[in-house]
Design a protein around this nucleic acid. Structure first.
Lengths: 332, 332
DNA sequence: TCAAAAGTGTTATCCTTACACCCATGT
DNA sequence: ACATGGGTGTAAGGATAACACTTTTGA
């Protein structure tokens, strides 16, 4: 770059930059958190809906993203927020093998999170809704400590012992995966995925490094299915963000239909956060926050006693600051 | 774009995309929150340190950013995190008038937040540390409701009444600026700035829209000094993020020297959050969280009784999940 | 001796947690 | 009748907010 005394370097002539947009579209179906995937041509892996950003044509990222998600999946997005911009060289990046750019071009990708009130079937080709547990089996603690942690802990320990910085590795591993009595923190999804990647336990790491050796079957099942390009990393970022946001913004209602039962709401929160909640305390917190309002109508299809239907008091958003939900854990 | 049945559009040939990086570098000096600014040549406004990202040369955004901040300001960054990627057409964007790109080129800018343990004088040309109250005078509630809110509330009300959606405008305004009894939320810095911009009350809005009419003096003083390009928007994003993060991550210690008094720590938190805190309750919360450790040494230069020096127990970070500080408000 | 800032003790209140129990429906 | 899920009451413990007060220095 330029000499230190000239504060403004002449900008580098951009050889070829391609901006890719990727969307993590989340919905609840049958009490499970699902994510919209597409299978790119010639890929054996699924990925997120993605597309190039056209600097000439698109006015904003968000408009561009809404347009190509609708185009690819015939699905209209509701709530949308930017996640992160990924630009590291070395990581496999979207569009890289799409013929999108000349071989030497640099690809940046801007990730977005979108929430949908229902996982409606789009009947679009190559498009599926997938439970996100498919990609992160170890993230679901609703029924207690997931079995997937067994093989993961074992493999991570072997990795940690290998390094020169063994103590640090051990500490990171324990914190991220709640080993040796450390508490589980459901928000550290990205940290966990990156640790697996770094330790070479994610199929993507094996792929990106060109080391041919596949993972043993039990471990492969435990770490979850790989995604195209760096899409699983973007998905992990989205899950982290969403789990965190649940607690300080009423985002969960972006995933609910107009009318819902309190149990359905609790199941939705549990599906996103991946933990089981205490029923009474969850309801008390809801009530105190004054977030929902009974409709007087009943839902009889619950299997037991009919449940009252509620709605989110959306008008609150323009009346007072409104925080999210507390997560009163149900300890096993 | 391509027809709906082909899921993957051919990428648009990129006419000319320039990626700009901007850094909000924050430090505490004399109990005030300060931000590092530079004055670009031929500009009468200050801005953030910024530079082009070289897709060919730079391996990651972060490395590129560290390099050009050091180059421009002779300052080495410590803690760094990505904020947001700004890509809207229409908003003035960094490098736009730097001769950086051909007139028709599109500029994206990736904003970063960096925290420094002290506002050391860099003696670099064009570089200054500025209290951020210079850019957001209405954000400082440490001594009670800031006077700047008077002219702002008045002007916003006139704007709100003008619109077709007057009720919505009124509600947004009240929520963002704590009018008519609404509580102040120190995190909504970006929301407040964008509202001012939208209402045409920020000098940048007057500039970007080409409406010649300058703001009346009292209002101009109340809304704060403009910055080059869209840098004040990036700064607002940074302040929002930092104020939020204070509460759930121990980031405040990235802004403190190795040894500090509890009062200095409290003053730092107050400077960032822009609110006054209750001394005893702040200390009790600190103690309960076990975040700091007395050093037995004293600082005699406090003006009154000497204060004990403390240090952040950084080792906790690799031992257990550690949250931020609670903000026990001191109500006037 | 007084101002200035450090540091301590204590109480009332509210929120969270945890436990146990009753209610309405379909099979 | 009983299984299933819906819905309520209440007591214990802990965190927070708010009160006032003592201590140690420099001017």
């Amino acid at each position: 770059m330029s000499p230190p005394d000239t504060p403004f370097s002449a900008p580098a002539p951009d050889p070829a930059v391609v901006i890719g947009l990727s969307a993590v579209v989340v919905a609840i179906a049958e009490g499970e958190a699902e994510v919209l995937t597409v299978r790119p041509p010639n890929s054996d892996l699924e990925g997120l809906p993605f597309g190039p950003f056209d600097p000439g044509g698109h006015r904003t990222f968000e408009l561009a993203m809404r347009a190509f998600v609708t185009e690819q999946t015939r699905f209209n997005l509701g709530y949308v927020e930017q996640l992160y911009t990924f630009g590291d060289k070395g990581r496999d990046a979207p569009l890289a093998d799409m013929g999108a750019a000349s071989p030497a071009s640099r690809v940046l990708s801007v990730g977005y999170l979108a929430l949908a009130p229902a996982a409606v079937d789009t009947h679009a080709p190559h498009t599926q809704w997938r439970p996100w547990s498919r990609f992160f089996p170890y993230e679901d603690w609703r029924a207690g400590r997931p079995g997937a942690l067994g093989p993961i802990a074992e493999a991570l320990r072997r990795w940690a012992e290998r390094g020169a910085d063994a103590p640090q590795r051990m500490a990171r591993m324990r914190l991220a995966f709640a080993l040796d009595g450390a508490p589980w923190n459901e928000e550290r999804v990205l940290e966990r995925y990156e640790l697996l990647y770094e330790a070479g336990l994610a199929p993507e790491a094996v792929r990106d490094r060109g080391e041919g050796q596949a993972l043993p079957a039990p471990l492969a099942a435990a770490v979850g299915e790989a995604m195209f390009s760096d899409h699983r990393r973007i998905l992990a970022t989205a899950v982290s963000r969403l789990r965190g946001k649940l607690k300080y913004r009423p985002v969960i209602f972006e995933l609910m239909p107009e009318a819902f039962t309190l149990s359905a709401l609790q199941r939705a929160v549990e599906a996103i956060a991946g933990v089981a909640l205490h029923k009474q305390n969850f309801r008390r917190a809801l009530e105190r926050a004054d977030l929902v309002e009974g409709l007087g109508r009943m839902d009889a299809d619950t299997g037991g006693r009919p449940a009252e239907l509620f709605r989110f008091r959306r008008e609150l958003l323009s009346a007072r600051p409104v925080s999210g939900l507390s997560l009163p854990l149900l300890r096993d």
